[in-house]
């Protein structure tokens, strides 16, 4: 009951892990020793699509430091993020991240993730500064105009080898396309319409929380979507395990 009020929160298991990590550090374990290293690391990221009717576009993962931001709430979306959010195409976001000085590694899923499905991706980060290592994950809810979900710079610096943490993700509206929900404007299987379009015609050209889809069943007569395409937060559950 209490947990049902929590959105986008760390789970109790993470709290226990973190507390254990601190205790270990107090006992003089390797925690403090690892904080200054710049060795390669590997992470497995298991992603579960918690929605009823929203396939997720191929997930993009970026390991980076605090100089990199895939997006910032309240600010306009990059064109690369717009391409991902409107068309499910993460290639520009991955490419731009790959040439960013603050990025240590990227990974992408090879296919969409169906509702109810789980996939595991592996992210290698090369010579990361472990004191400032963060994880970003981005994917589109494909039966929408421009909804995304993911993690935005989650700190991994204190995650010891073999430890894992689980997080629930919430939905953002990139603000790049009006939420018309028309068949012509939604690329997912519910509509088969257009993906990326450079026009920016949403009510605010900035990344904000998504308000959900209204759908034809909800009275938006031109909507190609139906009640099963609605969602509530959280949208995915992501479990990050450090394996090296």
């Amino acid at each position: 009951m209490t947990k049902s009020f929590r959105l986008n929160t760390l789970t109790r298991s993470l709290a226990l892990i973190s507390a254990a990590g601190l205790l270990a550090a107090c006992n003089g374990s390797s925690h403090s020793d690892s904080s200054a290293d710049t060795t390669d690391r590997m992470y497995q990221v298991a992603i579960t699509n918690l929605t009823a009717g929203q396939p997720l576009s191929p997930v993009a993962l970026v390991g980076h430091n605090s100089d990199y931001h895939a997006f910032t709430v309240g600010q306009a979306s990059s064109v690369a993020l717009e391409q991902l959010a409107e068309g499910g195409d993460n290639s520009a976001l991955i490419s731009e991240a790959g040439s960013h000085a603050g990025v240590y590694g990227t990974a992408t899923a090879s296919a969409p993730l169906a509702p109810g499905g789980t996939e595991t991706l592996t992210l290698s980060v090369t010579a990361a500064n472990s004191e400032d290592l963060k994880l970003t994950a981005v994917t589109m809810l494909v039966n929408t105009n421009d909804a995304i979900t993911g993690l935005n710079g989650i700190d991994l610096s204190s995650l010891a080898n073999g430890e894992s943490l689980s997080m629930n993700t919430i939905g953002y509206d990139t603000g790049t396309e009006a939420n018309s929900e028309t068949a012509a404007s939604i690329p997912g299987p519910a509509a088969g319409g257009e993906g990326f379009n450079a026009d920016r015609d949403d009510i605010r050209d900035m990344v904000l929380m998504h308000s959900g889809v209204v759908t034809a069943d909800g009275g938006l007569v031109d909507s190609a979507l139906h009640e099963m395409h609605r969602w509530d937060n959280p949208i995915t559950r992501m479990t990050i395990t450090r394996i090296q």
């Binding site: 009951m1 009020f5 929590r6 929160t9 973190s18 507390a19 700190d155 204190s158 995650l159």
Partner: peptide
């Protein structure tokens, strides 16, 4: 248990 807000950042949770 009805706290409206919950801690978000992993770095700070232990703290």
């Amino acid at each position: 248990f009805f706290r409206p807000a919950t801690l978000l950042r992993s770095t700070l949770l232990g703290t």
